[in-house]
Each structure stands twice: as structure tokens, then as C-alpha cells.
Amino acid sequence: MNRTILVVDDEPRTREGISKTLEQWAQYSIEVISASTGRDAIKIVSERPIDILITDIRMPEMTGLEVIQLLAEMDVKPIVLIMSAYSDFHYAQEAIRHGVINYLLKPIRKKELIEAVERAIAKKEDQEQGQRLTKVIDLQLLEQADFNNERYEPAIEKALRYIDDHIKEKVSLQDVANAVHLNGSYFSTLFKEEVGINFSEYVTRKRIQSAKHLLLQSDMPISLIAEEVGYQTQKYFNKIFKEYEGVTPGYYRKTYK
């Protein structure tokens, strides 16, 4: 899989040197793009997925740490490498606190740079493997529920159909229990026994699966997708989606569509 690395440094010589070193090392199997300011970096990351960010720690207007903090607020978290001409342990501590995996002191030797990028790529692959595993488990649970549909108690079959038909609405356990004419407590227990996951978990996974389908198969704005799958605000939808998928809806669409 091709990777995209963003190099951010206000010093043209350093920026160009790192880019050239990485392109030659990877034989252009990775895309290296660059920015001279933190603000330019934020703009780039908001427009396209970035796998690895290599940023100077001290820059005019916006520091590397401020860039990382803004990206975290945007729920965008590339693997980050910090570089600096200052051998200051305080900066290293602060960088590590923000999830930076390596702190490189200038001037950076080519071997040191390449080894750091190799570790960053490995970490990115581990993250993606974990996300893929989550997606597989998520999909298997829902497919299993659908596959087993004919073997469920009639009340649970009816409940699953009700959830599908009302996914855009606020679906509570008691609403569904009433629809299938069961006591709420008994229905909750029966649902968990039959489906394998509890009611609220099933509804959330169903909403996320529906959202993923719409993200990839339509051009609907994310705010409308949130409403379509039963979330009243995009902010809350983004939060839940990120918890289950590891990335924001916007990042998911850009990456997988």
C-alpha cells in the first residue's frame, strides 16, 4: 500500500533534503509532500489523508506541537515524528505526551531518518490491521444476526425487522419490546441470548454499518448521513463512528471510497 508522508519545516533546505532522501529510499513508492508552515500543514491534512507527519517543533506562527494539538481536535491522527535543532528534554516530553513516536535532533542523519520512518510505517500498519479486524468482527456479528434470522424466536425476528425499519428514529429497548409485546427486562435477556450481543450494541453497530454504506456508496453530506442513521447531531455521530472505526466519517470516506 502506498503511503503519504507530509514534511513540515520552515527551512527550505531541511524540508527539501528530507523529501529527497525519502523519495530515493522508497523509490517513489511513497508520496512525499511538504509544507513550510503549520497552517499550510493543517490545510493539507484537512483536504487529504496523511499517513505520517514529520514536523519541525519550532516554527514561526504555529509550532509543531500546536499542529499536533489541532490535528487531535480534528480527530485526525497520523503517525508523528518531531524534529528539532534543540536538544531540550522538555520538548521531547511534551511531544511524547501528544503521541509522537520519535524525536529527531537536527541535523538528522539519513540512516536515522529512514529507520524512524520504517518504524512509523510499521506502527501505521499495526493500527490499520487493528481497524480491519474491528471491521471484520463488526460485519460478522451483523451478518451472523441476519443469517440466523430464521432460527430466532419469532419475537426476535420481528424485533430485528423493527430495528431495520426504524433505524432513522430513536429506537429504545422499551419501544421494541412493546412492538413485539414482551416485558422490557425479559426482551433484553432474550435478545442477548438469541443475537449474541446486547440490544444497544446491536443498534449502534447497525447504525455504523448503514453509515459506512452511505459514506462509500453515496455523496450525501455527512450531516445528512448522521440523520439518516438515527443521530441528531453530526458531532455525536462523529464521536461514535470514531470509537468504532478508529477514524472519522470524513477520513473513512476519503480513504476507502
Rank of each mutant, 00 (worst) to 15 (best):
S218A: 10
L71A: 04
A145H: 04
Q93K: 14
N148D: 09
I222E: 08
E47V: 08
I197S: 07
V100L: 08
Y103R: 07
K242D: 14
Y252T: 12
G246C: 02
I137F: 08
E128P: 00
V7E: 02
E194M: 00
V195L: 13
T248A: 13
Y256V: 10
S46H: 09
Q27I: 07
L190T: 12
A226H: 04
R48D: 04
I52N: 05
Q234I: 01
A116S: 12
R151C: 09
Y231G: 07
K235P: 00
T14P: 05
L113Q: 04
I33C: 06
L173R: 11
Q234A: 06
R15P: 01
K242N: 15
E193I: 06
N148G: 11
A177V: 11
H181Y: 06
I96L: 13
K123W: 01
E94Y: 04
L22S: 03
G38V: 04
E23C: 01
D88L: 10
G64E: 11
L53H: 06
H90L: 11
T134P: 00
I167G: 02
E16Q: 09
T233Y: 06
I222A: 06
I208V: 15
P78C: 09
K77A: 13
D126A: 10
R15S: 03
D164F: 00
E115F: 06
H166Y: 05
D165S: 07
P12M: 14
K106A: 05
L173I: 13
I114G: 03
K123H: 08
I222G: 07
K206G: 04
T204A: 11
D9F: 02
S210I: 03
Y91F: 10
I33H: 00
F147V: 13
A41D: 09
R58M: 07
I167W: 01
F241N: 09
I156R: 06
R151S: 09
I167F: 01
E73M: 02
I30T: 13
K239R: 13
R58N: 10
E143W: 00
V117H: 02
A211F: 01
L224C: 07
I225E: 15
Y252G: 09
Q217W: 00
V7S: 01
T204P: 03
L22H: 03
A92M: 12
A159C: 05
A120T: 05
E11Q: 12
K135V: 03
G99N: 06
F241R: 08
L105F: 04
T37F: 00
R48I: 13
A177Q: 10
F89R: 15
K43N: 08
I197K: 10
D164N: 13
